[in-house]
Design a protein around this nucleic acid. Structure first.
Length: 315
DNA sequence: GAGTGAGT
DNA sequence: AAACTCACTC
């Protein structure tokens, strides 16, 4: 099984450069430096070539907004996954301050100012301070601003219920790629509302065909993007990744893979109807007739019965 | 920090 | 002609 470090891809590097920009501003360095890092990050997201290749060919400087400093950071990230500039900034900026930037209306300058006066580093503390009207005693913050911050935090909370399709897909693809690399398995597929291309996604469902669940589950909960493990079992495990998005992983025997995929792709209502059709017509199905509905309905029967056998509470 | 233009 | 520094802007 290949165990090379997952390549730090363009998107991941762009993310770090953006964060360097934020940290520079939080620290109070020249704003234009921050702007440059963010501009470089944007240019990198538009690239169609892997940065590692550009590094080898010494062509980094061809990227707009990439000069000596940004190039050095990129080289370090490609080589080691870490950048000295980034590490130095992290050490110089109070940990947690970065998360305050997620609140719309709170930019780097405001976050810094709030921290300097109130030592606030978490969104929870920020909310509490706003409730207690401690924010509007600060320079540049009036009652209106304080109110907006409270609203922003509330909106932030609401949003963590469902994710937009493209966000969920990004997280899911990352996980699928990781699992494929680590397990060497091919049949690792996204199911659920994400497979149905719903606009918003509650949980991501991934189905794997294998008879050896435990090691797969172990790799799953140890994935680099995992922030919290909600459950780890032999047939199903659940984790939380970035922004509170939940990913469920089901490992099913290879012979049940198709049925499982159908079942977990849903929707629930669709499954119920399909199962109803299957039950009603079962007696009449003999031998050679074939139709997609029939095949699907039979799969649904297999899947739903298999599901009830294998877990007391299929979630 | 990078881009730019002037000056060396 | 090219490489480099500097001052300035964004």
């Amino acid at each position: 099984m290949p165990r090379e470090a997952l390549t730090f891809d363009n998107d991941a590097i762009a993310k770090v450069l953006d964060e360097i920009g934020d940290l520079i501003e939080l620290k109070g360095e020249n704003v234009f430096r921050a702007v440059t890092y963010r501009a470089a990050a944007r240019a990198i997201r538009d690239l169609r070539e892997p940065l590692s290749k550009l590094v080898e060919e010494k062509r980094l400087k061809e990227i707009p907004k990439v000069g000596p400093s940004v190039a050095e950071a990129i080289e370090q990230l490609v080589a080691t996954g870490v950048s000295k500039r980034h590490a130095d900034l992290q050490a110089a900026v109070p940990p947690g301050l970065l998360t305050l930037l997620r609140v719309p209306g709170v930019g780097p300058a405001t976050a810094r100012m709030i921290y300097d006066h109130l030592r606030i580093t978490t969104i929870e503390e920020l909310e509490e301070a706003a409730r207690d009207h401690r924010l509007q005693q600060l320079p540049k913050i009036q009652a209106k601003t304080e109110e907006n911050i409270l609203k922003s935090i509330a909106a932030l909370r609401q949003r963590t219920g469902r994710s937009l399709l493209h966000e969920a897909r990004a997280s899911a693809s990352e996980m699928v790629a990781y699992l494929k690399e680590r397990t060497g398995l091919e049949r690792i597929v996204v199911a659920g509302s994400l497979r149905r291309y719903r606009e918003t996604i509650g949980d991501v469902d991934i189905v794997v065909a294998s008879d050896a669940a435990p090691p797969i589950m172990a790799m799953f909960v140890a994935a680099p993007t995992v922030e919290r493990v909600l459950a780890q079992g032999d047939t199903k495990s659940s984790v939380v990744v970035d922004r509170g998005l939940q990913i469920d992983l089901r490992v099913v025997p290879p012979e049940s893979f198709g049925a499982a995929l159908l079942y977990f792709t849903g929707s629930k209502e669709h499954n119920v109807r399909l199962r109803g059709i299957a039950l009603r017509r079962r007696s009449r199905w003999t031998g050679s007739r074939r139709s997609s509905v029939r095949i699907a309905a039979r799969s649904m029967l297999r899947a739903s019965t298999a599901c009830r056998r294998s877990s007391t509470s299929p979630t």
